[in-house]
C-alpha cells in the first residue's frame, strides 16, 4: 500500500516535469547603417555621422498564423545592445510543428511591467536602460556624433521612453515570416537618421512629444533580412 502511494506521488511529481516537445526558433537582429553592418564608433573616425551606442528593448514576441495567435513567449523581454553581439540573437522555444506566417513584437516595455517594481535579467536597472529621476524604462537608445550637431563634442543622444498617455512610446512591429528555424531581422538606421536634422534635433532625454514622434518611426526600421 505504502509503495503504491509512493508510486502515485512519484508519477504525480513526474507529471510536473513533463513538457510538450518544443523546437528552437532562432532570431537574429542585424543592425546596419550606411548599407553596411553597424560598427560602433570607437572615436576618431571622420564620417559625418558616427554611431556610438544602440540599445533597445524588444518584448512580447508572438507568432500568428493568419489572424490566429499561435504562440506567445512568456517573460518576453530582450535587451538588444549593439556592443554585445550575444544580445543580438536569441531563440523562441516554440511547439514543434507549429505553423505561423507572422511575427509580432513590441519595441519597448509595456506599461504593466513599467509599474511592476524591480525585475531581474534584461529588465534589471543595472543595464542603464532605466530612468532614475522619473520611473520608466528607456525603450530605445541611440547615441553618436555628427559634424552637424552643435552639442558638446558634437554628440547626439536619443533616449526614447515614456509609458503613459500622451507620451506612450511603446511600438509594435509586425513582420511576415516564412522561416521555421531561423529568422534574421534587419534594423536599418539610415531612414531614421536621414529624417532627423541633427543641427537642431539632437537631444531627447524624457517622455515628450518628440520622443513619441521618433518612436513612431522605429517599426519601419525593422524588416526581414533572410530566412530558412
Amino acid at each position: 500500500m505504502i509503495q503504491a502511494t509512493i508510486l502515485y506521488h512519484l508519477l504525480l511529481a513526474a507529471n510536473l516535469f513533463y513538457v510538450a516537445p518544443t523546437t528552437e526558433l532562432r532570431l537574429e537582429f542585424l543592425p546596419s547603417y550606411a548599407q553596411a553592418p553597424l560598427n560602433l564608433s570607437e572615436g576618431g573616425e571622420t564620417e559625418t555621422i558616427q554611431i556610438e551606442k544602440l540599445k533597445c528593448y524588444l518584448s512580447n514576441f508572438e507568432l500568428y498564423e493568419g489572424t490566429q495567435r499561435v504562440f506567445v513567449e512568456t517573460n518576453s523581454y530582450h535587451l538588444l545592445d549593439a556592443s554585445v553581439p550575444n544580445s543580438l540573437s536569441f531563440h523562441l522555444e516554440i511547439p514543434s510543428n507549429l505553423n505561423f506566417s507572422e511575427m509580432r513584437f513590441k519595441i519597448g516595455i509595456d506599461s504593466t511591467t513599467h509599474a511592476g517594481g524591480a525585475f531581474g535579467g534584461d529588465l534589471d536597472p543595472m543595464h542603464g536602460m532605466y530612468w532614475t529621476w522619473q520611473s520608466g524604462y528607456i525603450n530605445f537608445k541611440l547615441e553618436g556624433r555628427a559634424t552637424a550637431c552643435p552639442a558638446r563634442k558634437n554628440k547626439f543622444q536619443f533616449h526614447l521612453g515614456g509609458y503613459q498617455y500622451p507620451f506612450n512610446t511603446l511600438q509594435e512591429v509586425r513582420l511576415p515570416v516564412k522561416g521555421k528555424k531561423m529568422i534574421a531581422v534587419a534594423i536599418e538606421l539610415d531612414e531614421l537618421l536621414s529624417s532627423i536634422d541633427l543641427a537642431t534635433d539632437y537631444l531627447i532625454m524624457s517622455p515628450n512629444a518628440a520622443a513619441v514622434k521618433m518612436a513612431q518611426q522605429l517599426p519601419a526600421l525593422f524588416s526581414i533580412e533572410d530566412e530558412n
Binding site: A115, G117, P125, M126, G128, Y130, W133, S135
Partner: peptide, 25 residues
C-alpha cells in the same frame, strides 16, 4: 510623484548628482 513603485525609488537619490551621484550597476 515621479516614481511609480517603492522598488524603483532608491534609484533616484542614488543617481542624483547632488545626492549620491552613483549608479546601481
Amino acid at each position: 510623484g515621479a516614481i511609480n513603485h517603492l522598488d524603483m525609488q532608491a534609484l533616484a537619490p542614488i543617481s542624483h548628482p547632488k545626492e549620491m551621484n552613483e549608479s546601481i550597476a
